[in-house]
Design a protein around this nucleic acid. Structure first.
Length: 587
RNA sequence: GGUCCCGUAGCUCAGCAGGAUAGAGCGUCGGAUUCCUAAUCCGAAGGCCACUGGUUCGAAUCCAGUCGGGAUCACCA
């Protein structure tokens, strides 16, 4: 058990059970928590056990606490116990326990905090899923990073994670793309195309594709009807755009295991497509009917008209209104494709399906949750994380973008300018449901304004210490084996023990962040850990006896290097989850 | 009008499935480099946690409502 808090949570719950107080249910016992106290003066661990039990047991919390203290203080790992405030029980653990725990952390290397092998649940994380109509722009950045880091986090926390990208390659925007490419193709053949008409994609990034098609097909497409060239160009355009997107994502360090094509859901026609089969299932469940939808409340669209359509009775499964499955022309709606898609995901055995979406998809959440409930009958959980907007600033001035003119900032430009690590860290240095201001100047600045450099520097500093030690004390063994054998009980300075306790929180942070789907917690934790390392380093300035390297005292130096290695490993591990490098030196 | 998110220090934000005296960075003021990287550290000042009720031993946190700010709202994708 590498999580100190859950270890003692278990012990205290056992102690509570052994008290055999009447009226104590197991559900009540699950409310007992063990956490680090806010104020370090209160000890190492604090539990609310007595306060949770007091009322149901009709006892004074102090009385319960006294009984618990009698049991807990018999624990050989516990140095002292006291009761404080309204009934908190505060524990201090023995030096021997902490020394052993530090050794455990050191020996675990960068796997410290990772879930030990157990039943891995299959989780699907879908993120990015940008339309394949052009390069990624900054707006996609946040979701990409949050999704990728969340996937990293869940994998580290012991889940079997599939990273998925849903390619919206079936809709009308793909026809628009193909027509835009066709124009570029004609341009490549020397035809004058003039200004790009309204409604088509004006971006230059389609020029090379037009040229490529001109090379492979010559002018043969010019003689065809649109119905003939459209599928040809569509195919090539989707491939080219996905290549573009994949390379943009690679620049951000984002990767996916599965690229799922929306078009593949339509394949097979009205009888055999995944969509029709999934809808047939919903129909069997009585969740599909023909009817008309009421107009939205409040705003009444001027062009409102009643139309009878095939509808999904999503109100039966928690939605606010029923949803259209089929357009009046007989085509499936976008949502109908989702029905097939959700069915496919469910059939692949995921116990949780997570979607990381932009805030503009807020209105889509309920129907997705409803769909998940209908299809899996509660067996698979649908979780949606919305990322709020990112506002771009340059030197305090908002950066204006216009989609119409094609003047948008691409993801690639941002990565090129500020670097992958900074982009990723900044996107995670905020909880995802809060808007985010992103200032180019600040993010590029290599200063304390910039948490990325702060954390990376702490990691580099650890390695600088190792280099210095190797230089000053060449006989000093280094490496995980040597450090795991260090006598950690030699670490008695309060800064050192505080560092040890901070590190002990890492598994707890990972667990909680994974459960809440909040990767930003890891970023904040890393900042705090880095801060404590920097502080301890500087204490060595004021008190030379506290320096990590002491040539007069090899055993102490070895223990301190082991401590530093543990910090270094956690920083590297956390930066790995965030998707940023952990450099060994920064110059 | 419906739905969702946000409202915490001058500014930008944390606050861990309710817990003890609400935290950090920036900014302001005052300090620390013969020293393992000062890209760092230490200290001070600064808060009616939007407002009003409710739930309970206990609320920034949960619930209801109010007021602000943002997103979204029938065949689009």
């Amino acid at each position: 058990m590498s999580n100190v808090f859950s270890l003692f949570e278990k012990r205290i719950r056992n102690a509570v059970q052994s008290l055999e107080i009447e009226g104590i249910s197991s559900q009540l016992i699950s409310r007992i928590t063990v956490e680090p106290p806010r104020d370090p003066a209160h000890g190492h661990l604090a539990t609310n056990a007595a306060m949770v039990l007091a009322k149901p047991a009709k006892m004074n919390p102090r009385v319960i606490a006294d009984q618990l203290v009698a049991i807990i203080s018999a624990d050989s790992d516990v140095a002292s116990v006291d009761i404080a405030g309204p009934g908190f029980i505060n524990l201090r653990l023995t030096d021997g326990f902490w020394a052993q725990h530090l050794t455990d952390i050191v020996s675990s290397g960068t796997r410290f905090g990772a879930a030990s092998a157990g039943s891995k649940s299959k989780v699907n994380v879908e993120y990015v899923s940008a339309n394949p109509t052009g390069p990624m722009h900054v707006g996609h950045c946040r979701g990409a990073v949050v999704g990728d880091a969340l996937a990293n986090l869940l994998a580290f926390a012991g889940h079997d994670v599939t990273r998925e990208y849903y390619i919206n390659d079936a809709g009308g925007q793909i026809d628009v793309l193909a027509k835009s490419v066709f124009l570029r193709y004609r341009e490549a053949l020397g035809q004058a195309i003039g200004a790009i008409p309204e409604g088509l994609y004006p971006g230059d990034y389609l020029v090379p594709l037009g040229e490529k098609i001109a090379q492979t097909h010559g002018d043969s497409l010019l003689a065809m009807d649109e119905a003939q060239w459209l599928p040809l160009i569509k195919e090539a355009a989707i491939d080219a755009m996905m290549d573009l997107i994949r390379s943009d994502l690679a620049a951000l360090g984002v990767r996916h295991d599965v690229f799922f094509s929306e078009r593949s859901l339509h394949a097979g026609g009205a009888e055999n497509s995944l969509i029709s089969k999934a809808i047939a299932r919903l129909t069997d469940m009585g969740l599909v009917y023909k009817g008309t939808l009421p107009p939205p409340k409040g705003t009444k669209p001027e062009d409102w008209e009643d139309r009878e359509q095939m509808l999904f009775r999503s109100t039966d499964v928690g939605d606010d209104m029923d949803r259209a499955l089929m357009k009046s022309n007989g085509d499936f709606t976008y949502f109908a494709a989702d029905v097939g898609y959700f069915q496919d995901k469910f059939d692949r055995g995921f116990s949780e399906m997570i979607f990381v979406l932009g805030a503009d998809h807020g209105g889509y959440v309920k129907r997705m949750e409803a769909l998940g409930r209908a299809i899996s009958d509660g067996a698979s959980k649908v979780t949606i994380r919305l990322c709020q907007l990112v506002k771009l600033f340059r030197d305090g001035e908002p950066v204006k973008m216009s989609k119409r003119s094609g003047e948008f900032i691409t993801l690639r430009e941002v990565v090129d300018e500020v670097g992958r690590d900074a982009v990723r860290f900044m996107m995670l240095y905020r909880k995802n449901d809060a808007p985010l201001d992103f200032d180019f100047a600040k993010v590029t600045e290599q200063s304390k304004d910039n948490p990325v450099f702060y954390v990376q520097y702490a990691h580099a500093r650890c390695h600088s210490i190792f280099r210095q030690a190797a230089n000053d004390m060449p006989d000093m063994p280094q490496g995980q084996d040597a450090w795991a054998g260090a006598d950690m009980s030699l670490l008695s300075d309060e800064g050192e023990t505080a560092l040890a306790r901070k590190m002990a929180e890492y598994p707890r942070i990972i667990e909680a962040a994974a459960a809440a789907h909040e990767p930003h917690r890891v970023a904040f934790y890393l900042y705090e850990l880095a801060s404590q390392l920097h502080a301890q380093w500087n204490r060595g300035r004021d008190y030379p006896a506290l320096r990590f390297i002491n040539q007069e005292n090899a055993p102490s130096t070895l223990a301190r290097l082991a401590l530093v290695s543990a910090v270094s490993n956690i920083l590297a591990s956390g930066l790995g989850i965030i998707g940023a490098d952990a450099p060994e030196e920064m110059r």
